[in-house]
Design a protein around this nucleic acid. Structure first.
Length: 614
RNA sequence: CGGGGAGUGGCGCAGUCUGGUAGCGCACCUGCCUUGGGAGCAGGGGGUCGGAGGUUCGAAUCCUCUCUCCCCGACCA
């Protein structure tokens, strides 16, 4: 093409000095490779005007349209050059922040032998999510969905003395989980890049310290990624452990629901969110219990309407079947919902499900829709709010019949009262007296988790303490979904024209648009700008393709680099280039010499704003 | 795993009911023209119609089996 066909590179003596400078900058940025000139015509970045049918969510659509990822199979993607740059940026931030907390990076195998999983008892416990296969000798292996087994094995071989602790090891690696239903692109893939870290400490107290140091590292990481997020208290699930926080990026398309107090710091996953103890009521006259016919009225709404009472006068009775085949009744107020996670944790169960028609009939003597606690002979749990109910309505355990004027204590006995319902937005905060719950949708991008001695005990990872006594290491594990973080960032930063990358994780800083590649003076100015920007350490994608201006504008907006520099015949006539801020659409004209400084100032500004976001 | 839907060129789709030798838009290549928000005209390349079997003179189209993908639900760090 015109004038700059000659590539200069590391071998070019004329540019040797400039080159050395670039290499130094690159090292600092911890990006592995940097091309001499990021020319769009020589890059691999084919944008799509139309949205592939498979893409449901915005981030997925935009990633496909901007050529960040290509699907190879369900939940399995290639990270295309521009997508991979984003991944590397996020990884670089993670590395910096973890290293600052004295975490040490290593890399464990993706393929893991079954024997370690059998040792930790998870070979049988982990379901089909674990992709298993045999080698040529018939030995069992799996693709690692997580690395507790491997890291515990690694550390138990090395760990001898309490003097070696604390220890926190991490890796950034591709994991595989054979999800039932992968979807939403990188948001929920089967193969995905994850940072996982594991801490080892002498005791609970030290482990808690490690936990909070990771918690704070995570907060810094997501702030630096320019994301609005919340650290939420979460259910510790089947892995077991005392407490855990999930980091959720706030986005309407998130799959998780998060409740957060408007006044205090309390924030929790809806599975975990506590309900405030109900205020005691003033007791009135207890009416006489009475049977009413309620033909065909099964749901709370139907019964309430039929009997002309409010739903909160009803006691909803849910029958669950447990692992051992017994059934449990859970009572909640008619306008509340049972929180199965809370019930399951209270009962110490791994699995529990709603009873089917047969079991309901067998447990209560009546059909579903008419269950109630009166005369019920199975274990009964009740939400605290039920205790404060009077003259309530509930099923009579026979077809088309309900009791009215039912009173707890008088007409039925509850085994245990507790917090068994889902919290809702607008409710008063359980922790402070001033706030109420606000609700968010969130994308879980990270989790910090205390494992205790679960793995160190079963796999015998121990050390000698200062008294020469053998002790199990106290562990914690900490994950960040790297690809999911990228997807969440798009979910949170976009407009009708495309992606709006936060500065710190944008694939490049600047999109340089050359609008008149036939014009020598424009070429010369654009090229000089390119070199000036690069020498300032900025990452520039140079669009010098032979396409119309409109095409370049559309692509630039779609790809969403924070800053666009537009060089064209028109502006250059007045000696000016144009600088556009993608996020705000703000445009300023500057003489080319001033452009680099202007951009640096704009980027600094953007960065500060983004890192402050909450 | 239950329910629903779809597989036709790189992407988005029509054609399938009623069988007759595959088409449109975008993208790509060539030329002209145009050139600050995804231009226009002309020409061109590319598809064993997911796969296997069957029916038929003839199958993208009808039948059987199979694979893959998507959506809803249940599940899940």
């Amino acid at each position: 093409m015109n004038g700059w066909v000659l590539e200069c590179g590391p071998g070019c003596l004329r540019c040797a000095e400039k080159y050395a400078l670039r290499l130094r900058i690159i090292e600092k940025l911890t990006l592995v490779s940097e091309e001499v000139r990021m020319r769009m015509s020589r890059y691999l970045l084919n944008t799509l005007k139309e949205v592939p049918r498979e893409a449901e969510t915005l981030s997925h659509q935009l990633m496909l349209r901007s050529c960040m990822i290509k699907k190879i199979a369900a939940g399995i993607y290639t990270y295309m050059p521009i997508g991979y740059r984003v991944i590397r940026k996020i990884e670089a931030i993670i590395r910096e922040e973890l290293n600052r907390e004295n975490c040490i990076e290593l890399l464990m195998p993706a393929v893991q032998p079954a024997e370690l999983w059998k040792e930790s008892m998870r070979w049988d416990f982990y379901g089909k999510e674990l992709l298993r296969f045999k080698d040529r000798k018939g030995a069992d292996f799996c693709m690692g969905p997580t690395h507790e087994e491997i890291i515990t094995d690694v550390v138990r071989r090395e760990l001898k003395s309490y003097r070696q602790l604390p220890l926190n090891l991490y890796q950034i690696q591709t994991k595989f989980r054979d999800e039932i239903r992968p979807r939403y692109g990188l948001m929920r893939g089967r193969e995905f890049i994850m940072k996982d870290a594991y801490s080892f400490d002498v005791d609970d107290k030290a482990s808690e310290k490690s936990y909070w140091s990771m918690y704070h590292a995570y907060a810094r990481i997501f702030h630096r990624c320019g994301l609005k997020f919340r650290a939420v208290e979460a259910d510790s699930g089947a892995i077991g452990g005392s407490f855990t926080h999930e980091f959720h990026v706030l986005a309407d398309t998130g799959e998780d629901t998060v409740l957060s107090c408007s006044h205090c710091e309390y924030t929790a996953n809806i599975e975990k969110a506590e309900c405030r103890q109900p205020d005691p009521i003033e007791h009135g006259i207890l009416e006489k219990i009475e049977k009413k016919e309620t033909p065909g009225k099964k749901s709370v709404e139907e019964v309430a309407e039929f009997l002309s009472v409010k739903p909160d006068k009803l006691i909803k009775t849910m029958i669950f079947s447990t692992q051992d085949g017994t059934s449990v009744a859970v009572l909640v107020r008619g306008d509340h919902e049972v929180n199965e996670v809370k019930v399951r944790n209270f009962l110490g169960l791994n699995a529990m499900e709603l009873a089917d028609e047969d079991l309901i009939q067998a447990s209560t003597g009546g059909p579903s829709g008419f269950s109630g606690p009166v005369g019920l002979n199975i274990r009964i749990l009740a939400d605290a709010a039920v205790k404060e109910m009077e003259n309530a309505v509930t099923g009579a355990n026979e077809k088309d019949t309900h009791w009215v004027n039912v009173n707890p204590g008088r007409d039925f006995v509850v085994g245990e009262y507790g917090d068994f319902r889902l919290a809702e937005k607008g409710e008063r905060c359980p922790r402070c007296d001033k706030g109420e719950y606000e609700q968010f949708k969130g994308i879980e991008v990270g989790q910090v988790f205390r494992l205790g001695e679960k793995y160190s005990k079963s796999m015998n990872c121990s050390f000698l303490d200062e008294n020469g006594k053998d002790k199990s290491a106290v562990m914690g594990c900490y994950g960040i979904g790297v690809g999911r973080t990228a997807a969440a960032a798009i979910e949170q930063n976009n407009d009708e024209n495309g992606i709006v990358w936060p500065v710190n994780i944008a694939p490049f800083d600047v999109m340089l648009l050359n609008l008149d590649i036939q014009d020598d003076s424009v070429n010369e100015a654009a090229q000089r700008l390119y070199d000036d920007l690069k020498s300032k350490g900025l990452e520039v994608l140079y669009d010098e393709r032979d396409v119309r201006a409109g095409f370049k504008f559309k692509d630039a907006d779609l790809i969403g680099l924070p800053i666009q520099v537009i060089v064209g015949k028109r502006g250059l006539k007045e000696g000016l280039a144009e600088v556009k801020v993608r996020r705000t659409g703000e445009r300023v004209k500057e003489s080319p010499e001033n452009v680099p400084a202007k951009i640096e100032a704009l980027l600094k500004n953007l960065k500060e704003q983004e890192e402050q976001r909450r």
